[in-house]
Amino acid sequence: MRRTVFPHKLLPWLLLAPQLAITLIFFYWPAAQAFRQSVLREDPFGLSSTFVGLANFRKVLNDPAYLNAAQVTVVFSLLVAFFAMTIALFLAVQVEKIVRGKGFYRTLMIWPYAVAPAIAGMLWLFMFNPSFGTLAWPLRQLGIAWNPLLDGEQAMALVVAAATWKQISYNFLFFVAGLQAIPKSLLEAAAIDGASRRHAFWTIVFPLLTPTTFFLLVVNTVYALFDTFGIIHAVTSGGPGRSTETLVYKVYNDGFVNLIMGDSAAQSVILMVIVIALTAFQFRFIEKRVHYG
């Protein structure tokens, strides 16, 4: 709290008014509606609704299609987070060894950040299009029956590749910042003691990067859960046969395309709980980092 402040009483409310109005109308009201609808069931004509308690949740959690979406989401998120972080860390370590040309590499590395997820998906689909994609062509020559539009695993591989590609830039910038914060004297001391580079990396650099790695793990999970909707919508539409249908895609499909309100609202509430848990985890963790880091 500051010692000196302006004495006005009305002015701060006027300054806050636009932001508060937008959050109340477009955030809190719909979120409250999602909670309300999640415990109601509408009749087929949408004229009346009855209170059904947790029945919608029970129905959703017993629905094989929902469990499938949950499983797809876990696999997809783990693969994207793992590849996007591993590749970015490897490249960040390489770029730190370079003296001249760092800026040049960084400039080229940040491109994908500016590409919309949906377009990232379209680019990868274009390169790997089964009938005319330039990179699908060698796969065919090798005798691989490449068709991500029909084969579920190949479709998953394609959306994972596009989602990973887009996220490498972001992780790269954070790992570079993390590496630069490690005192050079530690590494020099290790070198004098005769530690190999590899040994020094795993015993000194990697442990000191833990805060960055954990932070990125949360961010990448949130990214894979929510921001990749565009990739999936543009490339596979959840298919073939639900093999790439994630939780967010399913909420969209049930609530907006198929108009099953109660189920969709229950799914929204479940997703909200996931976001709250992730955000709480992230802030608790960052709190710790402020104290010890």
């Binding site: 806050l16 932001q19 907006f256 709250i276």
Partner: peptide, 30 residues
């Protein structure tokens, strides 16, 4: 929030802060 003192100041701050946890993706239909 920073340069004025008024009742519910921190409540307003939290109200804005919590929107972090309500992305469009989780409340599409409403």
């Amino acid at each position: 929030i920073v340069f004025f003192k008024f009742p519910l100041r921190m409540a307003c701050f939290w109200l804005i802060f919590i929107t972090l946890m309500l992305p469009v993706e989780v409340r599409i239909q409403p």
